[in-house]
Design a protein around this nucleic acid. Structure first.
Lengths: 191, 191
DNA sequence: GTCTATAATTCGATAGAC
DNA sequence: GTCTATCGAATTATAGAC
């Protein structure tokens, strides 16, 4: 193998291009050829570095939600607001390659992406909900939270519904935060 | 042209098969060949009847949400519950070819599907919200409602998150209905 | 109306020269 | 490490026989 520094840079460039194409076009739209063209290398290089399209895809989605960046002990009654703000901040970045958006676009047609989505949900969101609220029905509550957060991502970044695209982040935090809060700690939620 | 009755039946069979494939695999997965095979005809017949893949797709998504089936003058404070129940009833049917689910799976990678989704949203959901609530910010409220309803459809039918798949419909109506109600008529919602 | 045959693309993947 | 050349498969779409 013996990759040079030059090739290491190419390697990460390929990964970045792959992520952007996944965000823009989904799994089928991220072709080996399109990735190579965007980076400015030969398609065979992409194969050499990542073995196959599946290998490239796996490498592209191997990131976590960084939910640990949410404070360790946040006030329980502001958890909903913090979650909405955290996800919006991730998605808004100029880096338009957030993993959740990318998975969202790929999961509709690619079983690997759907499975990875379920893992992220169960392993990260549900786990954090259980840790922070100590609720016994954490999985069910995390599921409800996911419907709202993924629904927001879907309409704002994938489907691009005008009212959701135009809304500023503070408005969304103020309006959707309480709903997430209700799913997390409200009464009347029973699995 | 002069289609016989036999061919008219084939024509609708093709449309049904196309819808089911769109639900199962999304736009790229619905190939002319796969549709033809499922119906038991030659691929060229599909082309003959619908001209192109785009033509078949357009025909497959040309349906409405039947929101008129919601009562003309429902109690305003039960609107959220009614909406959630209405959509769940549509999606649960043995007809696993609901247009909204189908569009949801296709819109991630197909611009036509995304555009059709926006049209459905603006022309049907937002219009009904405006008619029923008379709110001036109906578009914004309808957008919020869409995040929750589409998020539910996404996690339950496309991503198949276990907690959302396992929940029975009455539980979902009871838990999500109030949220939709809040988006429709609650205070603190401002565009 | 239904089918065969095939053109024209596009894709993932491999072999091998340099 | 990087490239050319190419294979084999799948797809949309068309032409035309019957």
């Amino acid at each position: 193998m013996a990759f040079t520094e030059r090739s290491a840079a190419t390697r990460t460039s390929i990964l970045t291009a792959a992520r952007k194409l996944l965000v823009e076009r989904g799994f089928e739209g991220m072709t080996i050829r399109a990735v190579a063209e965007r980076v400015g290398v030969d398609p065979s290089m992409v194969m050499r570095y990542y073995g196959s399209k599946a290998g490239l895809f796996s490498a592209a989605v191997d990131v976590d939600l960084r939910l640990d960046q949410v404070e360790q002990r946040p006030p329980l009654d502001r958890l909903g607001e913090l979650l909405v703000r955290h996800f919006l901040a991730r998605w808004e970045g100029d880096l338009s390659d957030d993993v959740l958006i990318l998975l969202l676009r790929s999961a509709s047609t690619n079983p690997m992406a759907a499975e990875r989505m379920r893992e992220v949900f169960a392993g990260q969101i549900a786990a954090q909900v259980a840790r922070l609220t100590g609720a016994g029905d954490a999985e069910h509550r995390a599921g409800l939270v996911s419907t709202q957060l993924l629904g927001l991502a879907l309409t704002r970044y994938v489907l691009r519904f005008p009212p959701m695209v135009e809304a500023d982040t503070e408005t969304l935090v103020r309006e959707i935060g309480p709903v997430v809060q209700h799913y997390l700690t409200g009464s009347g939620i029973t699995a």
